[in-house]
């Protein structure tokens, strides 16, 4: 961990401004991902802006009938919120599928959205990685890639996004709210928030330097049967091989997002028209153009079977 200076910010605008003044700055909230990476010098901020003192830890109803989740709401608190459990069960379940009780007590809503990949080559600083060191190459391609992306990857990167929460958020059409260093705010639909790796896998979201997430907003409850199903090698405390977030309506229509398959939570709205034709058809449409490796080709079949399980469960 490189030396850094540390300050506590008192307001979102002040935090964003502090970030603008310090080009090497990072915001820190839960710290569960950032400190992990700082210890390995994968993240090397020269300045930390502690945002825990910002009053962004509330969950409030929106005028439209949805929920506005403060950026600092801890994963445990979001998953346990009575409104989330009742109206956004897929989100509660996805949060609870992630990490451990200890980590969920610290990890925040914004931080979870910004989690970085668990690609083992990203984590091993002796190996080339375009995400960690742009232009150095990708050791994962041709290497051990069982956990990595089957779709949306590039010649530069086949990393996956590790979040469970974000997959549910994608199925729920959440919107990310931010404040920029100049004090202006914006709302970013989650579909546009995470980027595919392309030639610049180190640029993972559309956030600008110094831009701070202040909240994530959920639209009014979608109803239906909400399921989050995570498949992994051990029963808990592990990242997904694949996961499925689904909101299935009585009329048979559904929204489906996938985790563990791409550099971002994966949703193909057009594929959802295939729901009446079953999991195989939906999977074919969602993963059209997939380029799996030898190690992770099984994910295609696993998505299909997991989605089949979810659709069967939704039918009851």
């Amino acid at each position: 961990m490189r030396p850094f200076t540390y300050e506590r910010a008192a307001s979102p605008a002040e935090a964003a401004a502090a970030a603008a003044r310090n080009p090497g700055a990072r915001f820190i909230a839960g710290g569960t991902n950032l400190l992990d990476l700082m210890k390995l010098q994968i993240e090397t901020p020269s300045h930390l802006i502690d945002v825990n003192g910002l009053a962004l830890d509330r969950i409030e109803p929106t005028p439209e009938g949805g929920l506005r989740i403060g950026a600092l709401v801890r994963n445990t608190d979001l998953a346990a919120d009575a409104r989330v459990r009742r109206d956004y069960g897929v989100l509660s379940r996805a949060l609870l599928a992630g990490a451990s009780g200890q980590l969920r007590n610290k990890a925040t809503t914004a931080g979870n959205m910004l989690q970085r990949t668990r690609c083992p080559y990203f984590y091993d600083t002796s190996q080339p990685c375009n995400k960690r060191q742009p232009g150095s190459g990708c050791a994962a391609i041709g290497g051990f890639s069982r956990q990595l992306a089957v779709i949306g990857g590039s010649e530069a990167c086949i990393a996956t996004h590790p979040s469970d929460m974000a997959v549910a958020m994608r199925a729920l059409d959440a919107v990310v709210e931010t404040v920029r260093p100049d004090g202006t705010t914006r709302s970013i639909p989650i579909a546009e928030f995470h980027r595919l790796p392309g030639e610049t896998p180190h640029v993972e979201t559309v956030l600008e330097p110094g831009e701070l997430i202040t909240a994530v907003t959920l639209p009014p409850p979608a109803g239906g049967v909400q399921i989050y199903r995570k498949v992994r090698d051990r029963a808990s405390y592990a990242f997904a091989l694949v996961s499925v977030a689904a909101v299935v309506q009585r009329d048979g229509t559904a929204r489906v997002a996938l985790g563990g398959v791409a550099h971002k939570p994966w949703r193909v709205e057009a594929a959802e028209a295939e729901i009446p034709r079953g999991a195989k058809a939906v999977t074919a449409a969602m993963l059209d153009g997939a380029k799996p490796t030898h190690d992770n080709a099984f994910k295609l079949r696993l998505v299909e079977r997991t989605l089949g399980a979810v659709l069967a469960e939704a039918k009851g």
């Binding site: 839960g30 710290g31 569960t32 400190l35 502690d50």
Partner: peptide, 13 residues
Amino acid sequence: GRRINSCLTLAVM
């Protein structure tokens, strides 16, 4: 009163 991983948080926080 809440359990956390004390390795992933800074003392100054």
